[in-house]
Design a binder for these strands. Structure first.
Length: 415
RNA sequence: GCCCGGAUAGGGUAGCUUGGUUAUCCUAGGGGAUUGUGGAUCCCUUGACUCGGGUUCAAAUCUCGGUCCGGGCCCCA
């Protein structure tokens, strides 16, 4: 037996039905916010992902050479491809540009619950606008998606990486070492951050100020403690979010979101029930387009871990009930089989999902099968009813049944 | 990449400590019975010790390694 490669999964029909249902829910939510779906290649020029990345990123990249010696990589995320697409084909489109995507990504990591090597991300990017309303719109979309999934237990944390970057720069930390410092601060490893900063000749009181900054956590009242314009900016973001009915978040300047390309507002959503891999969503504002040969354009985006958000729902007890088919057509006797075939075909032409026995089973076994495929109705084709161009229609849930003219069968089933 | 735990029919499990007949039970799949009606019952049947090496007269059981899953760390673009 050959099993799935490590960190990948098969999705069975019941899984897929559930996943499609929730994918479409996300799509629908994005569309109600005026975002439009895109799709990019599942592999890209490896350079696209290497351009702005550190060594850790490379370690986890599925990179390979194709037969034409091209350096390619399976996409580890979809923000870079989206911005590449924007630079290549959408840079002259009316701003702002609102796009979303759903698809699998690949990272060579150690799998555990909620973490796979092939995983699915849903994301949105709002390109070409840098206002507080832009950030609010994006956060509200993320919040709406999570809310529409019925998840109760989650936390939105909003931060501003520009504040920290500025404080660190003012403290005299060289630009190329900012990431190193930010990483320690993200983990709140002050014991390690302090000697690191001291080694860069940062004064002790300045270090304390930086630590205080990352410890700035709470409701909108803490915004008064945010230095520079960022406090005002975030207040405008939260005011706008309030107007849009989103209030369940906190301000947390310790949100750093890794070492990446974010420049201003950053946010993340956690579902504590998930354990180690509890982050279900992350995003912020950034500029990337200039790296891919375009003009510098401000964007805000986020990505939701689809597998994790499904897991979070399961942990909260949400169960998806598979839908089943509309009708199963049974012939009472073998001489009715062709008539039954005609009828199932008629139903299908009318866009009714209908099935019929093809294994030569007797009526009773066929009825059992109809039940197992969760058919709403059984259409019983027998000689008696056929004399009046009719069939028996059985409601599989209630068990009630009635004789129905074939000409009225479709409309009866459609209800 | 590091530490730890696990893997027995399609799904869920007993057996493993203390090696020993045909590997337990539930469920599921196929067929049959009740002969124009499913989710009930009965009968027949299909189907598993994760893979490879070692110890032994004998391995599901002890042992080593691989694979995969899970808990934590690293990382999380």
């Amino acid at each position: 037996m050959i099993q799935c490669p490590r960190g990948t999964r098969d999705f069975l029909p019941d899984d897929m039905e559930k996943r499609r249902f929730y994918e479409n829910k996300l799509r629908h939510t994005a569309q109600t916010f005026g975002f439009r779906e895109i799709e990019t290649p599942i592999f890209e020029d490896a350079e696209l992902f290497i351009l702005r990345s550190g060594p850790n990123v490379l370690n986890e990249l599925y990179a390979f050479k194709d037969k034409g010696d091209r350096e390619l990589a399976l996409r580890p995320e979809m923000t870079a491809p989206s911005i590449r697409m924007f630079v290549n084909s959408m840079s002259n489109d009316p701003k702002p540009i609102k796009i979303f995507y759903f698809g699998q990504c690949f990272r060579y990591e150690r799998p555990q619950s909620g973490r796979y090597r092939e995983f699915f991300q849903f994301g949105a990017e709002l390109i070409g606008s840098a206002t507080p309303e832009t950030d609010a719109e994006v956060i509200c979309l993320a919040a709406a998606m999570i809310k529409n999934f019925g998840i109760e237990n989650y936390k939105v944390h909003i931060g501003h990486i520009g504040v920290l970057r500025e404080a660190i720069a003012n403290a005299g930390v060289p630009k190329e070492r900012t990431a190193e410092v930010l990483q320690k601060l993200d983990k709140k490893l002050y014991d390690e951050a302090r000697p690191l900063l001291e080694s860069m000749n940062v004064a002790s009181n300045v270090i304390d100020e930086i630590f205080t900054l990352t410890e700035t956590v709470g409701g909108t009242e803490v915004l008064s403690k945010v230095p520079g314009d960022a406090g005002d900016y975030l207040r405008q973001v939260t005011d706008c979010m309030h107007a849009m009915g989103v209030d369940n978040y906190d301000i947390d300047l310790g949100v750093v979101r890794g070492l990446d390309y974010y420049t201003g507002m950053v946010f993340e959503v956690e579902a504590p029930a998930l354990g180690a891999e509890k982050q279900i969503c992350g995003g912020g504002s950034y500029t990337l387009s200039e790296l891919f040969g375009g003009e510098k354009v401000f964007s805000t985006g986020f990505a939701i871990g689809f597998d994790r958000i499904l897991l979070a729902m399961e942990k909260e007890g949400h169960v998806y009930e598979p839908k089943g088919i509309d009708a199963y057509v049974l012939s009472v006797t073998d001489d009715m089989r062709l008539k039954a075939a005609e009828i199932v075909s008629m139903l299908r032409r009318e866009d009714i999902s209908a099935d019929i026995d093809i294994m030569g089973r007797k009526m009773q076994k066929a009825m059992k099968y109809a039940s197992s495929v969760r058919s709403k109705y059984a259409v019983i084709v027998g000689a008696k009813e056929m004399e009046e161009e009719s069939v028996t229609l059985r409601d599989m849930t209630s068990g009630e049944q009635s004789v129905v003219k074939i000409s009225e069968l479709c409309s009866k089933i459609k209800g």
